[in-house]
């Protein structure tokens, strides 16, 4: 059995004159969770929808579990949670999940799934009367009820309250534990840090960076903190830069640098705020994709 669940090679997608995907390549290993990150309009949903078989590529290829995305053989093996919608407004939550369970030979128990996702009290409520967060969770349940090998989750926690987000994360972690491959798109850096084995950052339809969260945020020999501006901070063997009270100390890797920085602070009665010994994924993301607002 091939150990790649999803393979994207030189993928190109154009809408009229706009190029949404411009030669994107990456792959997702079996049983791993991959987070696809990118600013609005970077091409995340285009990528996912081509892999789901909803859209066709203008160039390159996508291989899903060894098949073309449109191959009917793929359908039972893949679960899909679109960014929004997808439920009959007039069907009750439990009826909708029962319907999707009936498409599969060995589905999860729908009522158990509904309880575990905290939807027990609204099982008899029509889809259209569910809150946005409840619809999201039901949609997630519809994606996994068939016990798929590979799940596509397009912004699964967008608009969820912290409890619902936690429940979604627990489910994704359980999926990974049980060997299900997950490709999720998200805007939430903490979500990617928490869940993803691999992060793929795309922008303007191209791959910008990929790797484990640890590898992407790794910044040996860098310490950042905030303090009052204009401190005369000097550390032997290290360079110090400051931007409006944000200090970056670069020097020899290791705890000695940390001790030197905190030692200086102690001597001078300075309390460093937000002291970080590695970059956050958000820093990495903003460095890679820029700080301009996207439409």
């Amino acid at each position: 059995m091939n150990d790649t669940a999803l393979e994207v090679v030189d993928l190109v997608k154009r809408y009229d004159t706009r190029t949404a995907l411009d030669g994107l390549s990456f792959d997702v290993g079996r049983g791993t969770v991959c987070a696809l990150l990118g600013p609005n309009g970077a091409g995340k949903t285009s990528t996912v929808e081509i892999a789901e078989g909803f859209r066709t590529a203008d160039g390159g290829s996508v291989t899903v579990l060894g098949h073309r995305p449109q191959d009917p053989a793929v359908r039972p093996r893949v679960g899909v949670m679109p960014q929004s919608g997808g439920g009959y407004p007039g069907l009750k939550a439990a009826e909708l999940l029962d319907l999707f369970a009936a498409f599969h030979a060995h589905p999860l128990d729908p009522s158990d799934l509904i309880e575990r996702l905290g939807l027990g009290e609204v099982a008899g409520t029509p889809f259209r009367r569910l809150s946005g967060g409840q619809q999201q969770r039901l949609s997630l349940a519809m994606a996994v009820v068939g016990r798929p090998e590979l799940v596509f989750l397009d912004e699964p926690t967008a608009g969820l309250d912290p409890q619902a987000r936690r429940a979604t994360w627990e489910l994704i972690e359980a999926l990974r534990h049980d060997g299900v491959t997950v490709l999720l798109t998200t805007h939430l850096m903490d979500e990617a840090e928490q869940l993803a084995d691999d992060v793929v950052v795309i922008d303007h339809g191209r791959l910008v960076a990929r790797g484990t969260v640890a590898a992407l945020t790794h910044s040996d020999g860098e310490i950042r903190f905030r303090a009052a501006p204009g401190l005369a901070l000097e550390i032997a063997g290290a360079t110090v830069t400051e931007t409006e009270g944000r200090y970056l100390v670069r020097g020899l890797a290791g705890p000695a640098l940390l001790a030197a920085v905190t030692g200086w602070c102690a001597t001078h009665g300075v309390m460093p705020q937000d002291l970080q010994t590695q970059r956050s994924l958000e820093d990495v993301f903003l460095d890679l994709t820029g700080r301009d607002l996207r439409s």
Binding site: P76, A102, A105, R116, R147, L171, A174, H177, D178
Partner: peptide, 24 residues
Amino acid sequence: MSTWTPGSLAPRPEAAPLGRMLRA
């Protein structure tokens, strides 16, 4: 919110028989 029993989500993909899908 309860946690998940390990193995309970293990993949077991297969399409249902056509008759069951049609009925549902």
